[in-house]
Computed example of a mutant assay.
Amino acid sequence: MKKVLFSLVVAVAAFTSCSNGPSAIEFNDAIVNANAKIAQQQIEYDSKLTNAIESDSYSALKVENDSALARVDREIAIIKEMGTAKGGEAFKESALTTFDAVRKLIEVGGKFSTLTENSTEEDFNKLIEEYNAQMNDYSTKVDAMGGIQAAFAKDQNYDLR
């Protein structure tokens, strides 16, 4: 019995040591899941930022900003710590770059909390321009990530749905 158990342990150890990370589908799904959570967080944050701008009330924005950044950081950490599927290096790097762009977008949004009744329209417009530029950067990176994901899926012989 001990020999069989030892052989089983050795076989399991050999099998897991041969594994080069998650399967392509598990890897893809983990990144897609993180992206969905981060995108949803960005949408919620953008809505709160819009409400703050419309009401000219930025005091609660700092708390919202910190909360949004913490949620994005949590998803980034999950992807950083996750193993990489064979051939998935570019996809993982693109995902992390895209997620960092969302993080930067939220950081720029947080700058609105520095506005006061003494802030000028020019101060406000500079923040709007910076936010829009970062939103464009994020959109560009999302598009690029989609192309890299499609190439990864093609290389791994599975269809994206």
Rank of each mutant, 00 (worst) to 15 (best):
S7N: 14
L8V: 09
V9K: 01
A13P: 01
A14R: 06
F15Q: 03
F15H: 02
T16S: 14
T16H: 08
S19G: 06
G21D: 13
P22R: 12
P22H: 11
E26W: 05
E26G: 06
E26I: 03
F27C: 12
N28V: 05
N28L: 07
A30W: 03
V32A: 12
N33L: 14
A34N: 05
A34F: 07
N35P: 00
N35I: 10
K37P: 01
K37A: 15
I38M: 15
I38L: 13
A39H: 08
Q40F: 14
Q41E: 15
Q41H: 07
Q42K: 13
Q42R: 13
I43G: 03
E44R: 07
D46Q: 09
D46W: 00
S47E: 14
K48F: 06
K48R: 14
L49W: 02
L49V: 01
T50F: 01
N51T: 01
I53Y: 05
I53A: 08
E54S: 13
D56Y: 10
S57M: 08
S57Y: 04
Y58I: 02
Y58A: 02
Y58K: 01
S59V: 02
L61F: 02
V63C: 00
V63Y: 06
V63H: 05
E64W: 09
E64A: 12
N65D: 12
N65Y: 09
D66K: 10
S67F: 03
A68T: 06
A68W: 05
A68N: 09
A70W: 05
A70H: 09
V72M: 10
D73H: 10
R74W: 05
R74M: 12
E75Y: 05
I76T: 02
I76N: 00
A77N: 13
A77M: 09
A77H: 07
A77K: 15
I78T: 12
I79L: 04
I79C: 02
K80Q: 15
E81W: 00
E81F: 00
M82T: 08
G83Y: 04
A85K: 01
K86S: 12
G87K: 03
G88P: 04
E89V: 11
E89F: 09
E89P: 02
A90Q: 14
A90L: 06
K92R: 12
S94I: 01
A95G: 02
A95I: 03
T97K: 10
T97E: 09
A101H: 05
A101K: 10
A101R: 10
V102C: 11
R103N: 10
R103K: 15
K104N: 14
I106P: 11
I106Q: 11
I106E: 11
E107Q: 13
G109Y: 05
G109H: 09
G109R: 08
K111R: 14
S113Q: 12
T114V: 04
T114R: 03
L115Y: 08
L115P: 04
T116A: 07
E117P: 00
E117Y: 02
N118M: 04
E121M: 08
